[in-house]
């Protein structure tokens, strides 16, 4: 009889212990949040269940320069946290051997709400986006199959893949799913603006910021729509074509004349931290961006209809608008310890 009691204590006790450590995600680490008032995310979490092990593996891969052909360049090389995961102060992204790309690296946050990726929208799912920097000869210049072969040589990685996916054999699918578990967790929703909207402490906006918000809603919000500050669309915002880069944007993907010169409408969250601006990083500060929208628009058949009428802003308006844009910086996100480089 005693033995039976012991047996049950061991089995169920063990089960409870395992449940508390293994099955339940550690609170805070892989706690994906849908902020109040936001739409449902577009990303299908049912096909890639977030786990602590998967998130940590993705983070390790994100920071691992071993993913590039010559082990010099990681994802984080061009996507640094303090700038909203972009390449601050670099107009065009750099890759291995100091080669330059054709476009400015994009910020990485709130990706679960993204419906397509890259400046031209050529990528239809977050999970397959990393194939681009991995394979681009001027970025990481590698092949997914080489990465998979290399990771399969590593006993450390093999055990991490086992922990994340119950399979120690590293596959391309699992490399991409792990990276997505990290990148999808990069959420930014705690800026001063957010706190203002939620009537929370720290959300006290100045008179200038509030005036800027009003101007923003009147002149910018039809494309940079709250709360994500993008409508996930593609637009021609009237930039003159750089005749050396000759980048015509989304037309390369759709082959439709109507998409000539259209580029992703990027989110404006953390915008003050993610300079320079535009797909080719041509503007170094927000003042130049506003100069463009008020007096630099080049007319063309595909110009966004919202920009066909002139945007009028006084110098004071511009300063207030910039003050508002600065209130979109989210320090909780930019300095979130979970998104640092840990080799664990």
């Amino acid at each position: 009889m005693k033995r039976i009691v012991y047996f049950f204590v061991c089995v169920f006790g063990g089960f409870l212990l395992a449940a508390s450590f293994g099955f339940c995600p550690v609170p805070g680490d892989v706690d994906f949040v849908i902020p109040k008032g936001w739409p449902q995310p577009h990303y299908d979490f049912s096909k890639n269940k977030l786990t602590e092990a998967g998130f940590k593996l993705g983070r390790r891969l994100f920071f691992d320069p071993g993913l590039s052909r010559d082990s010099s360049t990681s994802c984080a090389s061009c996507h640094t946290q303090f700038s909203g995961f972009t390449h601050v102060d670099h107009s065009l992204s750099h890759g291995i051997n100091g080669l330059k790309g054709k476009r400015n690296s994009l910020t990485l946050f709130n990706l679960a709400w993204g419906t397509s990726f890259m400046w031209d929208g050529g990528v239809n799912n977050l999970e397959v986006q990393p194939l681009n920097p991995i394979e681009n000869p001027v970025e990481m210049d590698n092949k997914l199959e080489n990465i998979v072969a290399k990771l399969n040589q590593s006993t450390v990685y093999k055990s991490l893949f086992y922990a994340a996916f119950d399979d120690s054999l590293v596959t391309g699918q699992h490399v991409l799913k792990a990276l997505a578990q990290f990148t999808v967790m990069l959420e930014s929703y705690n800026s001063k603006y957010d706190k203002y909207m939620r009537h929370e402490a720290g959300g006290e906006m100045t008179r200038a910021e509030l005036h800027g918000l009003k101007l923003f809603r009147k002149n910018c919000a039809s494309c940079h729509t709250e709360p994500l500050f993008t409508n996930n669309g593609y637009e021609n915002n009237g930039l003159p074509v750089d005749t050396e880069l000759n980048d015509f944007g989304r037309i390369k993907i759709t082959r439709l004349a109507a998409d000539s010169l259209k580029f992703k409408v990027p989110s404006l969250r953390n915008i003050a931290n993610s300079y320079p601006y535009m797909h080719d990083g041509r503007f170094g500060n927000l003042k130049k961006v506003l100069e463009h929208y008020t007096s630099g628009i080049v007319n063309s058949p595909t110009l966004a209809k919202q920009l066909r009428r002139k945007i009028m802003l006084s110098e004071e308006d511009k300063n207030d608008l910039i003050a508002f844009l600065q209130s979109l910086s989210d320090k909780d996100f930019l300095f979130d310890m979970r998104f640092r480089n840990y080799a664990d």
Binding site: N48, H174, L176
Partner: peptide, 11 residues
């Protein structure tokens, strides 16, 4: 639907 496995693995 994102990263597939088996014969559909991007590798």
């Amino acid at each position: 639907n994102g990263a597939n496995g088996g014969d559909l693995d991007p590798v």
